[in-house]
């Protein structure tokens, strides 16, 4: 009996130590008088957080453990991978995070920041691990890691550690408050570009699209059962300039069928900017095509 109690005590002691040491890894980002978000210290003077939850604005007050308040400036945002980077003058810098691989069932510790800059803790397990995925904004996320942890709104953006203390990534909310991890590998990939350019360049066609079924009569000619109907066009955007109209049903872009969204977004990476692509579409019962030149997606 007493030995089992010992194991729990050991676990508890190990956890409190981990959380205490995580104090140097987190900051409180104040959004308003009574709302805040957690930021994760990524490298000296650089904090990353959840892009979807940080308000518009260029400057935020950040509080580090111990109550020191400084101003942090937004350096870059990437809604596609949900990463925002901020810079602030920081007295002490944490060690470089050690990336870690994980699998379903592994114990994880998610750390947030309270209003005073101190660590808050959540313990749980990895609910699911899946291969790379694409976000609805077209960003590639290296791995889909779902946690069985319940997180408070203000704990979003904090680090998620495994049992060995390795960094799985940054916590963020998915649909229905499911807690996801933006993997360390994705942050490592995105932050350098954010620091350099303030954004992640992506290709752009300037269209709002919606999946539709191709009418049976046109199925053979189209060669696919569904396409993307043009709902609206950005004035002067690549698709508008190429002579695409609202109501056209896009079948393929540069040979990639519009049936699979991820094939399409994969074609609109930074390297696509300036490339001429063939747009194949249905208009008034006929299949046509036009050439469009991909430009860089404007910052919203």
């Amino acid at each position: 009996m007493s030995e089992q109690a010992d194991i729990l005590t050991q676990l508890s002691t190990a956890l409190t130590r981990r959380v205490a040491s995580a104090n140097s890894r987190i900051v409180t980002i104040r959004l308003s008088a009574d709302r805040h978000l957690t930021g994760m210290l990524w490298q000296p003077e650089i904090v990353v957080t959840s892009e979807q939850s940080i308000s518009r604005g260029d400057e935020f007050e950040v509080i580090t453990a111990g109550g020191t308040t400084t101003t942090a400036k937004i350096i870059g945002r990437d809604p596609a991978t949900n990463i925002a980077a901020l810079r602030f003058v920081q007295p002490a810098s944490p060690a470089k995070p050690v990336a870690s691989a994980t699998q379903a069932g592994a114990l994880v510790l998610a750390v947030g920041a309270n209003a005073l800059g101190y660590a808050t803790a959540r313990l749980g397990i990895v609910n699911a691990v899946e291969p790379e995925w694409y976000s609805s904004h077209g960003g590639r996320i290296d791995q889909r890691i779902v946690l069985d942890i319940d997180l408070a709104r203000n704990e979003e953006g904090g680090p998620v550690f495994d049992a060995a203390g390795g960094l799985l990534g940054m916590s963020t909310f998915g649909p229905r408050r499911q807690v996801l991890v933006i993997p360390t590998a994705t942050i490592e990939r995105v932050v350098p570009s954010l620091l350099k350019d303030g954004r992640i360049a992506r290709g752009w066609l300037g269209v709002a699209l919606r999946p539709v079924a191709v009418p049976d009569a046109l199925g053979d000619m189209a060669g696919q059962p569904s396409g993307l109907m043009v709902m609206s066009l950005s004035d002067g955007g690549p698709a508008a300039s190429a002579g695409i109209f609202a109501g056209d049903i896009l079948l393929s872009v540069d040979g990639a069928s519009t049936r699979r969204m991820r094939n399409l977004t994969a074609r609109l990476g930074a390297d696509s900017i300036g490339r001429k692509v063939d747009l194949r579409f249905i208009r008034s019962g006929e299949v046509m095509s036009r050439l469009a030149t991909i430009t860089e997606r404007p910052t919203s």
Binding site: Q52, S135, F173, G174, P175, V212
Partner: peptide
């Protein structure tokens, strides 16, 4: 449904026509 979400791959069976 708000939150960082996955790209939707629509199921052709349930798609409406124009």
């Amino acid at each position: 449904e708000a939150g960082f979400s996955q790209l939707r791959e629509s199921d052709a069976q349930s798609l409406l026509t124009q």
